[in-house]
């Protein structure tokens, strides 16, 4: 027993080494792609912006000043003020928190469910696989955004519910990719070896199947964050996401809609924020795809 543990330890060590070099290899490939590096920097900045929003924002996001309703840009308020005289720059900075939460947490939910579902379906095969795939067929027969909107509306509008709706609505993509990837991993010798030493199925899935099958999902996850930021903004735009007074980019566009004629810049800024974050996710995703599979780019 102890011997086995020791053996397991050394196997783990070599595995860790291999993993490290693999990550390094991906990073080396990624570095060549200037756009992807820029995108990565943008995303890191965005995360920092969200974390340190209270320090970076010049004013609290809910601070009103009726005298400054729709005031233009000034030295004190760099991007001007909204209807209630709130500082737009501060609201944009705080808004990054909501958007990032929607992107990251929703994808985490979707990817976790998708990975488990795909791994189980791919590993067990036969009727389990059939059942899972039929369920996904039903899932995917509903247009994704329609499903998210319905879920969000039914659960009631709030940030938490929007995140859950986005998370549940986007599961099938991850599950299908995971399943396809598991189908190839399942046939590998190390899985057979694990079976030979009588490892339980749960252990094989946890220790061998999931870690080895997850690579193709990396791109999907990166782009999924962008997709969820965008869909989340759309949910807030139609009033099903973040509720006032908490600032959110989509909701800010919705507020600005009624005064598009007089103050078009009010809608412009939050839209640019959404676009930049989604673009960064997509560029990074593209870069990662090339890095993971360099033969596509030559």
């Amino acid at each position: 027993m102890r011997e086995k543990a020791k053996e397991g330890g050394s196997v783990l060590e070599t595995k860790r080494k291999r993993k490290k070099s693999r990550l390094y290899e991906i990073w080396r490939q990624l570095k060549k792609n200037k756009l992807a590096v820029v995108a990565l920097i943008v995303l890191v900045l965005l995360v920092l912006l969200a974390i340190f929003a209270p320090l970076l924002a010049p004013y609290p996001y809910e601070k009103q000043n009726s005298k400054l309703s729709y005031a233009g840009p000034s030295a004190d308020y760099l991007l001007g003020n909204d209807k209630l005289g709130r500082d737009i720059l501060s609201r944009l900075i705080y808004g990054s928190r909501q958007s990032l939460q929607m992107g990251v947490i929703a994808v985490a939910i979707a990817a976790t469910i998708g990975i488990l579902l795909g791994a189980v379906a791919g590993f067990y095969g036969r009727w389990v696989d059939n059942l899972c795939m039929r369920l996904l067929d039903i899932y995917q027969a509903m247009p994704m955004f329609l499903l998210c909107v319905s879920l969000a509306a039914i659960m009631g509008p709030s940030l938490r519910n929007a995140i859950i709706a986005l998370g549940i609505g986007t599961v099938p993509g991850y599950a299908r990719i995971m399943r396809a990837s598991v189908l190839t991993v399942r046939e590998k010798e190390y899985v057979e070896a694990a079976k030979a030493i009588d490892a339980s199925n749960a252990r094989i899935i946890r220790k061998h199947i999931i870690p080895n099958a997850i690579a193709p999902l990396i791109v999907q996850i990166t782009m999924g964050v962008g997709g969820c930021i965008m869909s989340g903004a759309a949910l807030s735009f139609i009033g099903l996401g973040v509720q006032p007074p908490i600032p959110e980019w989509g909701a800010m566009i919705s507020d600005a809609r009624s005064v598009m004629r007089e103050h078009p810049t009010l809608a412009l800024y939050p839209g640019i924020c959404i676009m930049l974050s989604v673009l960064a996710c997509n560029l990074l995703g593209d870069g990662l795809r090339d890095a993971l599979d360099p033969r596509l780019k030559n």
Partner: peptide, 11 residues
């Protein structure tokens, strides 16, 4: 692809 279509519509 990265542009929110509802925003583009308003613009």
């Amino acid at each position: 692809v990265s542009m929110p279509s509802f925003w583009f519509a308003l613009l």
